[in-house]
Design a protein around this nucleic acid. Structure first.
Lengths: 221, 221
DNA sequence: ACAGGCGTTTAAGTCTTTCCTAAGCCGCCT
DNA sequence: AGGCGGCTTAGGAAAGACTTAAACGCCTGT
C-alpha cells in the first residue's frame, strides 16, 4: 500500500509519515502542489492524502487538475478550514473523503481502511467460456469477439449452459430453469429454442447428447 | 439512484426523505434495524443512509451484520454522538463515511454525490455522453448544446441510463432505482416515462432491447 | 382552505417481436 | 424396417413495447 502524502507543514508531515509507516504503509511525502500533481499523474500511489492548505498553488487546484487528467486514485483531503463550503468544495472537486484538522491518528487510519476497502469492490457477473462471453448484469453476449443479439429465452438458455460448461445439462433441468415448475409447455419448445440459438452462434457450439440433454464444451470455437 | 434511509425519528426521517426526493433520488425509508438489514441483504439499494442511534438493535450492529453477509453497498452513517470513538467505530464497522447530526442538507447531498461518484469510479459530478450532458449536482441537463427541462423522474431515468451509457440497463434495475422497494407501481409506468423523456430529447437517443431493458448508446446524436 | 396546475400513474388500444405449437423430416439405434 | 429423439420451418398466439388519454394526488398561489 503506497500512500502519497501532500503536506507543506514539516512538523505535521513527518508526524503523519511516521504514524502511517508504523501502520506498515509506504509513504511518499511531497511538500508542494507541483510535485504532487506530477506524482499523481504517474499513478503509482494507491491513495493520496492531500492537504488543502498548500502555499502557492492551492491544494484544490491540484485535485481538480488531477481529476481532469483522469487520475482516478482515491484522494483523502485534509483541511484546516472548518467552514462547510470548503469541505463541500473538496468533495465536489473529486475528493473521496475529507478530514478536518486537527484529527487523531486513529481516525485517519480508520478512514484509510474504509477507503481501501471500498476500492476493491468489484462485481463478477461475467461468465466466460472460450470465445463465448456472457454478462449477467447487462445481458450482453459476445461470440468470437462480436456482440450477439439474443432474446430473453435464448439468453436464459445460454446462461444455463455456460454456467455448466463442459458438463451435460439434463433436458428437464433446462426446461425447469427456462419455464419454471409448471412445464406444461409443449415438448419440443426447447428444441426450437436450441435451434434459434445455434443459428445466432454456430451449430457446433451447442452439442446434443441423445436422450439426455445439451452441453457447451469447455473450449467452444 | 435508490437510497435506503434508516432512521427511527419520524420528523427527521420525513424531512430527509423529502429533501432527497427533491434532488431526484428515490428513497425507501425504514424505521428499524431488522427491516434495514433485510433490505440491505436484497442489495437493491445503491446507497444506505444509516442512523447509528436506533432503538433496540443498534445501528452499528446492522452494519456489521450486513458487511459480514458481504453486502458491499456504500453506507453513510449518521450519528448524534460526537465522540471520536463512535465515528471510528462506524468506519471500522464498514461505513464509508459519516455525518454528525445536526447537518445541512447541502452537506448530505455533497457526501452522497461523492460516495456515488466513488462507486462509479469516476471523479466528477457531470456525466457526459456524446451530445448529452447531465450534472448530478445542479440537476441540469443539456442535449445538443441546449438546456432541457426534465422532471424528477425523467432526470432519475436519464441519470441511470447515462451512468451506464453503452451498456444495457435491465428493466428491473431501472424500476428499482426509480421506484425503490415499493414498486407495486403499474407495469407500464416506466414505458410512459421513457416516452416522455424521448419526446424531450429525441426518439433515437434511448434504445429498447426487447425483453431486457433500455440503453443509451456511447455516442448518441 | 380551495382551485388550478403540473407531474405521475393507470388504463386502453395498437403495433411489434418473440415464443410456442404443429407438422414433416432426418438419422441413429434396436 | 420401424421407432424414437432431435432438427427445421412456418404460422398464429402471446408477450412486450408504444402511444394517447384521462384520473389522481401533490404542491402552489390566491
Amino acid at each position: 500500500m503506497h500512500i502519497l502524502l501532500v503536506e507543506d507543514d514539516a512538523q505535521l508531515g513527518s508526524a503523519i509519515q511516521r504514524a502511517l509507516e508504523r501502520l506498515s504503509y509506504t509513504v511518499s511525502w511531497l511538500r508542494d502542489g507541483r510535485s504532487a500533481l506530477n506524482a499523481m499523474r504517474d499513478r503509482t500511489a494507491d491513495l493520496v492524502l492531500l492537504d488543502l492548505g498548500l502555499p502557492g498553488r492551492d491544494g484544490i487546484e491540484v485535485l481538480i487538475e488531477a481529476r481532469r487528467a483522469h487520475v482516478g486514485t482515491p484522494v483523502l483531503v485534509m483541511t484546516a478550514r472548518d467552514g462547510l463550503s470548503s469541505r463541500v468544495d473538496g468533495l465536489d472537486a473529486g475528493a473521496d473523503d475529507y478530514l478536518t484538522k486537527p484529527f487523531h491518528v486513529e481516525e485517519l487510519a480508520a478512514r484509510i481502511r474504509s477507503l481501501t476497502r471500498r476500492m476493491r469492490g468489484l462485481s463478477v457477473n461475467r461468465i466466460e467460456v472460450g470465445v463465448l462471453s456472457l454478462d449477467v448484469g447487462t445481458s450482453e453476449v459476445s461470440f468470437r469477439g462480436e456482440a450477439v443479439d439474443l432474446t430473453r429465452r435464448e439468453f436464459a438458455l445460454l446462461q444455463a449452459l455456460m454456467e455448466n460448461a463442459g458438463r451435460l445439462v439434463r433436458r428437464e433441468s433446462l426446461e425447469n430453469s427456462l419455464y419454471g415448475l409448471d412445464h406444461i409447455v409443449g415438448n419440443n419448445a426447447l428444441e426450437v429454442l436450441v435451434h434459434s440459438l445455434r443459428r445466432k452462434l454456430s451449430f457446433e457450439t451447442i452439442r446434443n447428447v441423445r436422450g439426455f440433454g445439451y452441453m457447451i464444451p469447455q473450449d467452444p470455437k
